[in-house]
Amino acid sequence: MTISFAIIAVVIIAASVAAITLRHLIHCSLALVVAFAGLAAAYLQLNAQFVGFAQLLVYVGAVSILVVFAILLTRSGENPNEEIFSKTWMAGAAVVVAVLGVLVWAITNSEVVKREPSPATEVTVRGIGDVLMNRFVLPLEVIGLLLTAALIGAVIIAMSDRQERKMK
């Protein structure tokens, strides 16, 4: 347990709590960005440089912008007096507490954490590329297909309104 890990953990937890409790949705999304950046830092701590940078590029650069645009397009941030939690929040909170309890119990009683951790290994981008092109080439192709489908699907879902108007 090092100081840097403690700082990163506090940042991640604080930012993610802020992301789901703040009243204004734009503030929520900005707090979410801080949480994502903290996770990227955690990946760097864990020697996974490539994943950390990919996390920054995808989450901070793309997903957060998408969330912000969605908030602005649905005018969600403009009604300050609205209740922020749903009607069934009590049940949800109970489920969350139960899940957290089970997870913490499982982690603290696990056999895995009593093993000696393996020493840090050197991960090169070349190694990742080799694995990606040999062992994981099928998942890579599938994810390419999935991203293309998601791109087209997202465009079609979001612009369906205009097509209907044109048909009339």
Binding site: I12, I13, S16, V17, A19, I20, L25, A35, S76, E82, E83, I84, F85, S86, T88, W89, A91, G92, A93, V95, V96, V99, L100, L103, V104, I107
Partner: peptide, 16 residues
């Protein structure tokens, strides 16, 4: 685990 619980709380309790 805590991050998962926080995310779950957001998904289950928020209105938006």
């Amino acid at each position: 685990a805590f991050l998962f619980a926080i995310g779950m709380a957001g998904a289950l309790t928020r209105r938006n």
